[in-house]
Structures are given as C-alpha cells and as structure tokens.
Nucleic acid binder design. Structure first.
Lengths: 373, 373
DNA sequence: ATGAAAGCGCTAACAA
DNA sequence: TTGTTAGCGCTTTCAT
C-alpha cells in the first residue's frame, strides 16, 4: 500500500524512499504527488482547490497519484499561504453545563457543513482567562469567533476584539439593540418575564429568584429584570435574589441553610424562579431534603431547557432556549460577516424564539401560609 | 497605541504604514518587530522561542518593540516550519453526556498546563464520522490524539491510526492488557461487578441490566460482563440486557413499553444496573411514571458518576469514574509518548481507581414478588 | 489548461 | 551573542 512497484521511476533523481520516512508522519507532499502524476506543483494544487481550472483527465491522474501515495494535505501550508485558516474560535464558559454542550453541538454542525474547523476553549466565567484564551485563539489566526462571555456589558475581551476589528458573534449574551455588537440569543428579559407570569397565572404571589453567584452574568441580571417586570405588572413585590455559590449548583451545602431559612420564614415563597436549569435541579433536591414536595408544596421554574430537565421526574418546568440553534445561527451569522465585503449584514442582534414548558415542577400554590410541615 | 511618534524612522525604506493595514488583521510580523528593535529576524525569533540564547538587554528591546507594535505571533508559520503543531486532537462521542464534558475539562486543563492547544471533534458514536473527523484532525497535523471510540475492538479508525503510527491514547475505552494500544480508563468489568455485588449485598436477586442501543459500545459490553461475573459468583441467573434506543435516554417513549412490560412480568426485577448515568436517570423517571417508587419499590444503580447524579433526589447510586482525571491522565500519557524518543512509556494501559456510591436510589428490595401496586 | 516562481511567517542550521 | 540563509507545504499571480 505504501510502495507501488507498478509506479515508473520518476525522471528526476527522486531521492526520498518511502521507508526512510519516520513512522506516523506521512511525509508525502503535494510536490510528491505532482511528480508522480507528472504535472507541475501548481496543477496538482489546483486539482484540490480549483478543480474547474484543470482538465478532467489530468485531475484524475493527480487524484490517483494522491491516493496511491496516501497523500494528506498539510493544512498548515495552505492556511499560511492563503491567509485564511477557515478555523473558527469558540469560547464557552464551561461544557459542564449542558446548555453549552448542546450549543456546541449546533456550532459544530454548522461549522462542519460550511467546511470550517473549530478550536474550542472554555473560560470558566473568569475574565482573566477569557482574555488569555482569546489571545490564544487569535494567535492561531482563527477567522472569527463565536463566544459567550460572563458579562458583555463590561468585558475587557470584547473591547479588545472591537478595537482590533476581529469579527465575532456572541452566543447567549444579548447585545444592546442599538449597539454594534453582534449576538444570537433569546430575549432574556421578555422570556423570563413570561415564565414568571406563568407562575403568577398559576396562582403564585410570593415568588423568589435563585441566581448564580452575585448575578455575575449579564443574562442572570436580564432575567431578574424580567422577573421584576412580571411582578410589577401584577402589583407584586419583587424579592431580592437568592445568590447560590456556583452555576454548577454544588452539593448545595451552603444553599441548604439559605433555602431552609427562607422557607421557614413567615411569608415563605410558594414558587422559585431559577436563572438556570442546573440551579433549579439543585434547588429541587434541596427542597426535597427539607421535606417539601415539588410541586405540591413549592413550585420551581428553571431557565434553559436542557434536555435533562425533561428526564427528571417530575419534569422540570422551564423557559426553553433553542440551544443548538443558538450555536448554529451564531456560526451562520459569523460566516455571513466574514464573507461580506466589509458590509453591513442585516441586523446585528438576532433574537431567537423561546419556549415555555410549564409542567411537572410547577403547580398551584398550597393554601397554607407557611410551607414547612 | 498603534502608532508611536517617538519611534525613530527605520533605516530601510519601511513601506508599510500602520493605517494601510486592513482592520482586524494585525499584519505585524516578526520581521517588523525585528526591524523596529534593530535586530535580525533570527534574534527576534529567539527572544520568544529560546530566550536564554539572547542577551537580556536585546531581548528587552525586542519585547518592547513587539509590545509597541501589538505584535501577535502567527502560530501557523511557526508550526509549519518547526513541524510540530503542539496541537492535540480530541475526539469524543458527544458532549451532551456529562461524562465527556467532565472529561474535556480534565483534558483542557492538562493540555493548557503543558502549552498545548486542542482541537475538538465529536463523533456521535458513528464509525463513519469517526474516520472523517480523525482525518480532519490529521490534516491539521495534530501532534497526537486523545479519543474515545464507540468500540475499540473493531475500530477502523484505530486500525488506521495504528497503521500510520500516529500517537494516540484512548480515554474510557479499555485496551487489552496484552495489546499495544494505550488507554486510560477504569476497569470496566471489575467496577461493574463490584457495583452489582453491592446490589446483591443489599438483598437483590433479580437484577436487570439496562444498556444503550444493542450494547454497541465496548464499555457497555465490558460492564455487562462484570454484571455476569457478579451474578454467577452468587449463583444467580444473569438476565439478558434491556436495550434502550439512545445513550441520551430519549423521551423514553419506547422505553416505557419495554420497562412497563418487564415490571409487570411475574418475576420482575427488583433492581436495575444501567450502563450509564443518563440511562439511569431516564429509567428512574420512567419507573416513577409507572407508579413505582425508587428506591422503595425498585433500586437503580448507574455508572459514570456524573456530577448531576448527586444533585437529583434521591441521589443516584452509581459506579464512579474519575472523569476529569481520565482526561488529564490521557493527555499526560500522550505527551509522555510524544516526548519519548520512540521509546516504551511504561505500561500502555492505565487503570484508574473507580468508586462506588451506593445510596439514594439503592435500597433493600421489597418483600412482594411483583412490584406493581 | 498548465508551468515557473515567488512568497505566507516563522524557525533552525550554520557562520561569524 | 547575533546575523545569514534556507526552507516548512502550500497557493497564487503571471506567463505560456
């Protein structure tokens, strides 16, 4: 398979014997292929990049030679020369939250379909790491970026990207309508508001919000604003957010105390709105540990619509984002930007439709004033 | 920041004015930096790759020039020339299963620590896509691969990798002790056996296995073998595996019928061993839908130890794999291989310790013979 | 339709 | 310690 005796010896003093190559490195270059096919390097190159420029019979000869020699193009050379890598950089906070894993799926799908490769880095919601990881991607000369930052309103990395004119599209972060940043997301505020309205419609009045650490993310804040909207619209008093340590809803040891105290208080909430599904799942288990039944004693509404939410019992009520589609659209949007000659690509901010899944963990509030048995 | 008037005009006819560069592309090359710092290209290069070879005062001058010009090295050039990319290819089945997301975390951590970048692709457990995606990585001239294949015992992609001598380390797939493939995993068979023994110790005798579609994965088969071991060791009759459609335990509509029938049968199982946690979570919700209480009526044991399992209520009993560590060790092992001069790196197969979390969803079996109320 | 030649940005001998 | 000089593998004018 490696050596083919039927192959006539090349005219020039072809020196490289196949066996002299280090194992694991097919050091077959396009030049080798060209020589084997008795065409010039340029023609061989064209066969793969601009097939229409070369006669079919010639092309076939080249392709056969390539096959015979197990030629594998070295994309590095191509990219260096052509000054475009066809690599997209992707920065997500973490993959351990299924939201982003699902989004990645969409991103990969779209990129593959368009012949782009991906370089993925995660930031862990840390600003410093965001900078570092993006710099990293930039050094690889990615053509553009799809990224989710912790807080788009105060992001050093975004400012830098803007300053350098690097093309990027935000995913999940919802850019200001009047700004010049491009983003693909749902309408966080509106969708959250709708979710909370559904809670109110179910009869709840004392609704608390559970959010990640100090609402460090812009989305958490936007969703909280949506909560306030809904509460105010119904003449209800918004409660200050309960901040839980991590987005990943850690073993909830600390959460336990906080939630326990809250539920024992005179006017304990009858429903919770969590700014993401993981938090919701963690909260529910904490509530159960407290001896409360969900949704009979307390209702819980999440946000994200991760697949897993539908698998738990009762199924998690939640505001559903089209996670994979957010990824897909972000890539498409970015590619559109890249392929447009520095022109305006329609609207910079795309708002995808959200959904509401109000079942399972949401029910009417109990009659009692205090919930603990 | 871009132009610095204090900078003396360069000696040669330096033509490129900063403003002539296209926005978003810092076309500052090492040559520009060298010129600005009044050293040769080689010296400038050395400042970044082999700092010890250049006088500190010179190095500082170069670094300052680089800073001033916002020089960003083009890794493509470096990689092309040096013939090593310091990029590792990673292929995982999917990120939507938290097992792999957690593993990715370990991989990224380890790679970053060693100054390696990563290129991630997912295969969706499809053999054809495995080939295609790996070819893709190879064209990018990754230095090596960390990958999980659906079935290592019959893998076209692994055969190809072996034939070409590409360095790789398997994650999760457990290579044969006597083979020459490198892998990092837990001992699937032993750990599964231990899990099932714990079920038996709790008093269960009729234990069923729930696995993904047709046990297409080698791990599912190894774990089933472990189940058989445990059953035989106690003189119990292993049951044929219940195959559920997807690894991702889809809305379990089909599963419903299967599980329902099984539980209504005369000698219904009192416990289930699922070959992964997602399956277990899906199964539990199905069981609850059938009116069965877990663990009072039926016990469920998972496998994987994903973080989410500890968050649900009751917490999922499971065989715990050190997911992040599997990733970390796989990278370290691969790097060791890469840096060894074609030498043997100790043992090719690494077995990491597993754990057992037998709580929550596992309890003693009920007394009744049939479980449905 | 094909070929010759000039690099893309960087590193690594080899000199000095 | 620093500079000179070749390329790495490929694409792409510019000729023919």
């Amino acid at each position: 398979m490696t050596t083919d005796p039927t192959q006539p010896p090349s005219t020039s003093a072809s020196s490289v014997s196949p066996t002299s190559r280090p194992a694991g490195e097919s050091h077959v270059t396009l030049a080798d292929v060209a020589e084997a096919a008795r065409v010039s390097l340029a023609t061989a190159s064209r066969v793969f990049s601009h097939p229409q420029l070369v006669r079919e019979s010639t092309a076939r000869r080249v392709r056969e030679a390539a096959q015979r020699l197990s030629f594998r193009p070295n994309l590095l050379g191509a990219k260096l020369r052509s000054q475009q890598t066809r690599i997209l950089g992707v920065m997500l906070p973490t993959l351990e939250n299924a939201v982003f894993a699902e989004c990645w799926h969409g991103i990969e799908q779209a990129a593959m379909a368009e012949g782009y490769s991906l370089m993925l880095v995660t930031s862990g919601y840390e600003a410093e790491r965001e900078r570092e990881r993006v710099e990293y991607l930039l050094r690889h000369r990615v053509d553009g970026l799809v990224l989710t930052v912790a807080d788009a309103t105060r992001s050093a990395v975004l400012d830098q990207l803007d300053a350098e004119g690097v093309p990027y599209v935000l995913a999940y972060n919802q850019a200001a309508e009047d700004g010049m940043r491009h983003s693909v997301s749902v309408d966080n505020r509106t969708s959250a508001s709708e979710g909370v309205r559904a809670l109110i419609a179910a009869g709840h009045q004392r609704i608390a919000v559970v959010s990640g650490a100090f609402m460090a993310s812009d989305r958490a804040r936007q969703r909280y604003a949506g909560y306030e909207d809904a509460m105010h619209a119904h003449g209800l008093q918004p409660l200050p957010a309960v901040n839980l340590p991590s987005h990943i809803a850690s073993p909830a040891v600390h959460a336990g105390a906080q939630i326990g105290a809250l539920m024992r208080a005179p006017a304990a909430p009858t429903a919770f709105f969590c700014t993401n599904d993981l938090l919701a799942i963690g909260l529910i288990s904490e509530l159960k540990r407290l001896g409360l039944r969900v949704p009979r004693d307390v209702s819980v509404l999440g946000y994200d619509g991760i697949a897993l939410g539908a698998l738990v019992e009762p199924p998690l009520a939640t505001v559903v984002q089209p996670n994979a589609d957010i990824g897909t659209q972000a890539v498409k949007h970015l590619l559109a930007r890249l392929h447009t000659v520095a022109g305006r690509t329609a609207a910079p901010v795309t708002l995808l439709p959200h959904g509401l899944r109000v079942t399972g963990t949401v029910a009417a509030p109990p009659d009692t004033t205090t919930n603990l048995p």
